[in-house]
Simulated assay, not measured.
Amino acid sequence: MTATQWDQILKLLHLRAKDLLNKAHPEYQRLIAGKDWDEEGWLNILVRHPYLIKSPIAIFRNQAILCKTPTDILKLY
């Protein structure tokens, strides 16, 4: 996915890029933690390291949700 696509998804979710990331993941700790990132930097992290996202994202029509539990997907209806 591109940075533009991630930006659009983040707007649908009403979240920031860093809110999507699993901060306990060793790669997050090694590559990202403790550094100062601007908005473009956070978007590039999502592009290059999508495996760091903590939960699946469901998108339906013009809505999106971060599915922390399996039943969260029902919120799209």
Rank of each mutant, 00 (worst) to 15 (best):
L12H: 07
P50Q: 05
P70E: 15
D36K: 15
T69D: 11
I53C: 02
H49M: 05
R30P: 12
N22Y: 07
R61P: 10
H49D: 05
I73G: 10
L52D: 01
I57K: 00
W37Y: 11
P56H: 03
A64T: 03
L66P: 06
E40V: 07
D19T: 01
I65S: 09
A3G: 10
I9T: 05
R61G: 12
L52V: 02
W6A: 00
K23M: 14
N44S: 12
W37M: 10
P56Q: 04
N62A: 14
K23V: 15
I45F: 05
P26D: 08
K18H: 14
Q63T: 12
K54D: 00
W42A: 02
I65P: 09
I59Q: 04
C67D: 09
T2L: 08
P50M: 06
K75R: 15
D36P: 14
A33V: 08
E39I: 10
A64Q: 04
R30N: 14
L74I: 15
Q8H: 14
W6K: 00
K23E: 15
L21S: 04
L46S: 03
L12F: 06
L21W: 04
P26Y: 08
E39W: 09
E40W: 08
L21V: 07
A58T: 03
T71V: 15
I53G: 01
L52Y: 01
A24I: 13
Y28T: 03
A58G: 09
P56F: 02
K23H: 14
K18G: 14
Y51P: 11
L21T: 04
A17K: 01
I65V: 13
Q8P: 11
S55P: 12
